[in-house]
């Protein structure tokens, strides 16, 4: 038997196991749905929420006193009740009604306070079928619709 080799493998595997165990227990976040959040109420530990920005809803972006994005999300597979997400930071380009987002944060009983907001990347982008509504329709001149909604809130 090649004891030196097995000892090396054994030690490295042990170290790796310890690293993985400590890192997964300290950084793992539970995955929840909107329905679960509403059922449980306040969530102190950070969780991950995969949800869809409610179709035809308004996404608000305000810059005073801090950059804040606010929008409503609902469950993707079973859209029912929605909750409001408050995210402090810049408005991502790809955040739009109907888009899927991955949020991490806590729930204070009223708002989901997200400290991380990721919108689905373009390669996910599923093209529409021919014959669907003209994709260019209903677009504002500049495309910066959300800013105007921000103005409506503060103006």
């Amino acid at each position: 038997m090649n004891y030196k080799l097995f000892a090396a493998v054994f030690i490295v595997a042990g170290v790796l196991g310890a690293l993985i165990w400590s890192a997964s227990s300290s950084t793992a976040k539970r995955v929840v749905t909107v329905a679960e959040i509403l059922e449980r109420g306040i969530l102190v530990d950070a969780v991950q929420l995969g949800a869809r920005v409610v179709e035809d809803s308004k996404i608000e972006f305000i810059t005073q006193p801090e950059n804040t994005v606010r929008f409503q999300v609902t469950d993707i597979s079973d859209p029912g009740p929605s909750i409001r997400v408050v995210y402090q930071g810049m408005m991502p380009d790809t955040l739009k009604p109907g888009r899927d987002v991955i949020l991490q944060g806590t729930y204070d009983g009223a708002d989901f306070k997200a400290n991380s907001l990721l919108t689905q990347c373009p390669s996910k982008y599923t093209p529409p079928k021919p014959g669907a509504a003209n994709p260019g329709e209903g677009q504002s001149e500049t495309g910066y619709q959300y800013q105007e909604s921000g103005a409506q809130i503060n103006g």
Partner: peptide, 28 residues
């Protein structure tokens, strides 16, 4: 690999789905 499939493993073990992100990968 573990980190990518962590949601599946955690759900299988504890019944609750959890995820790990960049802090996990960096730490390990």
């Amino acid at each position: 690999f573990w980190g990518v499939l962590f949601p599946i493993f955690s759900e299988a073990v504890s019944g609750e789905k959890s995820v790990v992100g960049p802090p996990f990968f960096n730490q390990v």
